[in-house]
């Protein structure tokens, strides 16, 4: 069994939209809230979808904007225009 991948985001307005999108798209995600940041753990694989964030934010979102809200991550990254994936045992 693969361990958790994880992503940590700032507790900012945009951060919250991204966190909501991730929670909606990853059924097994576990959300841990700390002062000023939120760490999301998920077994094996976690996906961040551009469209889900856009519908949370109500505006176009370039996935590279993630750079502004990211605090940390764990897992192998694969990013393209539509999705940002964290994965073990790729």
């Amino acid at each position: 069994m693969a361990g958790n991948v994880s992503i940590t985001l700032q507790n900012t307005d945009e951060g919250r939209a991204i966190i909501n999108a991730i929670s909606a798209d990853n059924a097994e995600a576990v959300v841990n809230v700390y002062p000023s940041m939120t760490k999301i753990d998920c077994p094996g694989r976690l996906i961040v979808n551009r469209e889900s964030i856009e519908s949370e934010m109500g505006r176009p979102f370039d996935l590279q904007e993630l750079q502004l809200s990211l605090v940390s991550l764990a897992g192998n990254v694969d990013e393209d225009d539509d999705k940002f994936v964290l994965e073990w045992n790729r």
Binding site: Q10, Y34, P35, S36, M37, L68, L70, V71
Partner: peptide, 22 residues
């Protein structure tokens, strides 16, 4: 540690910390 800075009211350090961490 940066989360701790936030908890202790040090907004400036949290911000550089997370700005670096991004």
């Amino acid at each position: 540690f940066m989360s701790g800075a936030a908890y202790n009211g040090d907004m400036a350090t949290v911000t550089f910390g997370f700005s670096a961490q991004s």
